[in-house]
């Protein structure tokens, strides 16, 4: 089991979505342990997953572990903002 699990929920693919995915991927690669796992979930393809995980809006980023679970929503295209919200940087 990896030490870090991030789930990113997006609604379809658009330039903004691509930017969000790229930003979160960069956070994984540059700021998190190398075994960090990132799941990108397209709620258009698998809406039942969004329902199961109670995702109210996209883009949503959930850090499943390490605990506590953190859940972010909004403009995730700014790496600095994402890092700060995940409390990885002040």
């Amino acid at each position: 089991m990896s030490s870090y699990l991030l789930k990113l929920y997006v609604a379809g693919y658009s330039p903004t979505t691509d930017e969000v995915i790229a930003t979160v991927r960069r956070v994984c690669e540059e700021n998190l342990p190398s075994d960090c796992e990132l799941l990108v979930i397209n709620v258009l393809e698998t809406p039942e997953v969004a329902v199961r995980d109670k995702v109210l809006a996209t883009p949503t980023l959930i850090r499943e572990y390490p605990l506590p679970v953190r859940r972010l929503v909004g403009d995730l295209t700014d790496k600095r903002v994402v890092l700060k919200a995940l409390e990885l940087e002040n």
């Binding site: 903004t16 883009p59 980023l61 403009d75 994402v82």
Partner: peptide, 22 residues
């Protein structure tokens, strides 16, 4: 229920709200 911690204080962003109807 969790909405998620909204990032981007004092900023405007676009999100997609998922309604139960799909």
């Amino acid at each position: 229920t969790p909405f998620g911690f909204p990032v981007g204080v004092d900023e405007t962003s676009e999100i997609t709200v998922l309604q139960p109807s799909g």
